[in-house]
Design a protein around this nucleic acid. Structure first.
Length: 334
DNA sequence: GGTAGACCTGGACGC
DNA sequence: GCGTCCAGGTCTACC
């Protein structure tokens, strides 16, 4: 199978930087702890079939990744693969920028943590965020798996005919936009999120001039945080928590996505007291001095708690620890 | 601007 | 096996 190489910043470590956020256990991502390989299907275009391609990403040496591809690609398609893998792994974040974070919060200098795993597209990050709202983590895992299997394109990876083994891509905006809400509800178990997800997908298929999501503006470093937050909370299924989470996925770390997990952390780890609203306020104020790295500090503090209970994240698999780490942490703090 | 209640699913629990 | 309760963030109606 064809292999591409991809340069990375010198401080990049695949196992550490993939296993840095819960999305690494969400379909279509598959992390193999034994071989320290990230596998998934990428969609190379937003069409009816989406040109799915299976990739396996390994770190062969410092500063270099090997990407094995399921079949030969045109040069332009290889560029799409490079761009999507770079986005997932946050290869655009320089070693200097990570070092700046470590100066602000030296607790994570030794481990080198700083990059937070995300999806190959903004659309997938937004949908994953919406499917993580008002549901427990195993529900989020299930919704993402079924969205891929029911709506996404398939790649045959072994065998042929009905008995063939297939891997599935995450749905593209066009694929999700044309799916009936009833199908999402009954087959993907997304519940009341059905209409919101279809409408969200439709907004990603439209040009900004026609009311569609302005992805270039959202990715533009010049866009002010407050304007971005106001824009995101108007998207269907996106409230204050989801908007703040999408912002961190866009590299805006000043705002914290505060949820019940934050309140639990504030109470049991940071020793705060009071109602859920008061706990959230105290958590926000606690991390505010970290400025534009507040979320990274907050997140890696939480992540360290999970790892203390369940072992290093790179040893987790989707169906084992990966499906339980949040609930186990919550139970431990009750 | 703040608040209450509905939305939906899956897991835990009691019978 | 069945019914009930609960957790989870967003949205809408209402004050």
């Amino acid at each position: 199978m064809p292999v591409m190489t991809l340069p990375t910043p010198q401080d990049f470590v695949l196992a550490r930087d993939v296993c840095s956020y819960g999305y690494f256990v969400l379909a279509p991502n598959v992390w193999d702890p034994r071989t320290k390989t990230l596998m998934r299907v990428l969609s190379l275009r937003d069409g009816a079939t989406s040109d799915p391609v299976l990739v396996a990403i390994r770190q062969r040496a410092k500063g270099r990744l090997a990407i094995t591809i399921s079949h030969s690609l045109e040069p332009s398609q290889r560029e799409v693969v490079r761009a999507q893998v770079s986005r997932m792994l946050r290869l655009d974040e320089s070693a200097q920028r990570i070092a700046q974070f470590h100066q602000r919060d030296p607790r994570f200098a030794a481990s080198g943590r700083g990059r937070i795993f995300r999806s190959p597209t903004l659309f997938e990050d937004v949908v994953k965020t919406v499917t993580s709202c008002n549901v427990q983590w195993p529900g989020t895992i299930q919704m993402n798996r079924r969205l891929c299997e029911v709506v996404g394109s398939a790649v045959v990876i072994a065998g042929r005919g009905p008995a063939a083994t297939r891997a599935f891509a995450f749905p593209t905006p066009k694929q999700l936009a044309r799916t009936r809400p009833g199908t999402l509800r009954s087959r993907c178990r997304v519940g009341y999120r059905d209409v919101r997800l279809v409408e969200l997908a439709r907004l990603f298929t439209l040009a900004p001039s026609k009311g569609g999501v302005d992805q270039a503006w959202l990715e533009d470093p010049a866009t002010p945080d407050d304007a971005m937050f106001k824009y995101l909370v108007k998207l269907p299924g996106v409230g204050p928590y989801a908007a703040a989470n999408i912002m961190q996925l866009l590299g805006r770390y000043a705002r914290l996505p505060l949820d019940t997990e934050s309140a639990r952390h504030g109470k049991h780890v940071l020793g705060f007291k009071g109602s859920a609203a008061k706990l959230a306020k105290q958590v926000r104020e606690h991390f505010a001095p970290l400025g534009e790295d507040a979320f990274r500090s907050y997140w890696f503090e939480l992540w360290t708690q999970y790892e203390a209970l369940k072992g290093p994240a790179w040893t987790w698999d989707r169906d084992g620890v990966g499906s339980t780490f949040v609930s186990d942490a919550a139970r431990a703090m009750k």
